[in-house]
Design a protein around this nucleic acid. Structure first.
Lengths: 148, 148
DNA sequence: CATTAAATAACATCATAAGTTACATGAAAT
DNA sequence: ATTTCATGTAACTTATGATGTTATTTAATG
């Protein structure tokens, strides 16, 4: 099933942006991601709406970080992207009044909710500056961050 | 992103099959799921390969449970279906040697692995007979079975 | 031999992230 | 003011994989 790589891509870009002096144009970011400027604008727009980045039109314009990497968590970006669900697993809805279908869906749903809660909790524990730290340690990529 | 409802559907079917005396034809199962006999055969084939159901051709043929519901877990069926990944979240691979991309992907991957481990663990704790119990408790079916 | 039902191949449909094209809007440089 | 640069946005195409469909073959029963 096709994967949604927006989270990974946006995190990647944000950390790179932190090391730049000037705003990064959509064109520049797109070439960084081997993609298209419009795709970049589309996804970055969600981050701007939440206040993580800002955009400026015209000469010298482009995208900049609006707040510090240490104030942005994986969860923040995950939410800003607005993914409908993190799971490929869905529930059937052929017979919503069939007690078996209800029991089955309830059992699956319980597990998905618990697993997603754990995932979101872990995402909330990681700020983007932690990932930038790994950069300094490259190529050994030693575990200097406090994450588990 | 489109959901994969095969797990829910197969669990639903297996529990219904447990209440039948004769083999269920793909046709019958398909109408139960509002779908097509070929779709049923395609998915059931995976369960048969793992020994959870058996299929018989010709007159009086169809699909039957090969083992007890109490010996089948959600995890068993999940594995038998052979989903590639439970997550819609994917990792970028534009620059596999970029230390930032590596750090980002590692962080995401760590979380996904932990969340999936929890999910699989929970799936392993639920056997199909547990879901069938809910059936007896359902108001519309109280005449079906009173003991529990 | 006729009928039933699975097995299989080949193809169509659908949803959605991603990619693309085209044009409008706004800001800075000249 | 005009040109240039870059975002904003609409509309469309592409790619992918579960799902759906049609047609044919294989096997078992009556």
């Amino acid at each position: 099933m096709r994967k949604d790589s927006r989270l990974s891509r946006m995190l990647h870009v944000l950390i790179h942006m932190n090391q730049l002096d000037a705003p990064a144009t959509s064109e520049k970011i797109a070439s960084m991601l081997n993609t298209n400027p419009v795709v970049v604008r589309r996804t970055m727009a969600g981050l701007r709406d939440k206040g993580y980045v800002s955009s400026v039109k015209g000469h010298g314009g482009g995208w900049s970080l609006a707040i510090s990497l240490s104030d942005i968590t994986l969860l923040d970006i995950h939410n800003a992207i607005g993914e409908s669900s993190v799971f490929t697993i869905g529930l059937s809805d052929e017979h919503t009044s069939c007690p078996i279908e209800i029991a089955v869906n309830q059992a699956i749903s319980d597990v998905l909710i618990e697993a997603e809660a754990l995932l979101l909790e872990r995402f909330r524990d990681v700020t983007l500056d932690m990932l930038a730290v790994g950069f300094a340690d490259y190529p050994l990529n030693q575990q200097a961050s406090s994450g588990e």
